[in-house]
Amino acid sequence: MRLTIETDLRYHFAEPADVLLTVEVAQLPDQALIGDRLVIDGVGPLRAIDGEDGIGRRTWMRAEGDFQARYSAEVELDRRPVTIDELPITPRRELPASVIPYLWPSRYCEADRFEAFVEREFPGANHGARVLAMAKWIREHLDYCPGASDARTTAVDVFVSRQGVCRDFAHLLASFARAAGVPARLVSAYAWDLDPPDFHAVVEVWLAGDWYLVDPTELAPHDGLVRIAVGRDATDIAFMTIFGTAELIEQSVSVRRQDTALPG
């Protein structure tokens, strides 16, 4: 599947502020970046740095006044369906060093608060089926409600309120998985066929020696997810982190599929 991605971010900064922008498509084996372009107005010098775990790229800048960031990309996805039901959960003592931090609680994923609940609600199976049961529970018990949460909302808040948006669903699934001894990280993504179009948050879990995508919302096709960044929670994957204040003027995300015509 080949996708065309376009993002337009417009803000106004009344005072100068440092900004960390994370909107560029990550180059990974199952998503080949054909080409991309990032154009930013209203900022000082740009400095690119690697994303978390070396996945993706972030860009530092100093913004003031009217700010606009336009990003476009063309990407080829080659992600075959994978069933994780029978993939084994790796014992904690056998996890590689780079994966261990994704077992720990983080700012938005208070995994330690869910250990008793997870043990009682999702007993038994030491396989990926346990993670899928968690995702199903979240879909069945949470309402998807835009505006129901904000930048302070944690997994515990969502568990209590039983409503939220994609990042809240992802925070809760990551918390459940970590409580069960499954490393889990948040993933920001562009998503084909997501309605309305926006940045999307999903989860990757570590099973049988690799990371596997799980979307607890099931709002977009799995094979149409284009990863941008990964991290412990929304802190690490935010598309725009502002060290100061800014006024949102306009924001848009577009993901279109390029259908190849069959030869006549």
Rank of each mutant, 00 (worst) to 15 (best):
P146M: 08
R139D: 09
G128F: 05
A151L: 09
L87T: 00
F169C: 05
E74I: 15
V82E: 12
P123Y: 08
D85R: 12
R152Q: 13
P81G: 00
R79D: 08
R113L: 14
P146V: 06
E121L: 01
T153R: 05
H127G: 02
A151P: 00
E74D: 15
R120A: 15
D150L: 12
T83R: 15
V165H: 06
D157W: 01
S149L: 09
L87Y: 00
C145K: 11
V82F: 01
D78S: 14
I138A: 09
I84N: 05
V158D: 09
A155W: 11
N126W: 05
F169Y: 15
R130L: 03
F159S: 09
R93Y: 12
R139E: 12
A135W: 10
T90C: 11
T90W: 01
M134L: 08
D78L: 14
A111W: 07
W137N: 01
I84H: 02
A97T: 12
C109S: 08
G124K: 02
V118P: 05
Q163H: 00
C166Y: 02
L103Q: 08
L132M: 08
A148W: 09
P101L: 04
T83C: 13
E86Q: 06
S98G: 10
R162H: 10
R167N: 07
V156L: 15
E121C: 05
E140C: 04
G128N: 04
G147R: 03
P123G: 01
W104G: 03
Y144S: 12
L77Y: 10
Q163T: 01
P105K: 10
H141R: 15
R113G: 08
Q163L: 00
R130V: 01
V131K: 08
S106C: 08
S161D: 15
S149F: 06
R130W: 00
F169S: 07
Q163I: 00
I84V: 14
I138F: 06
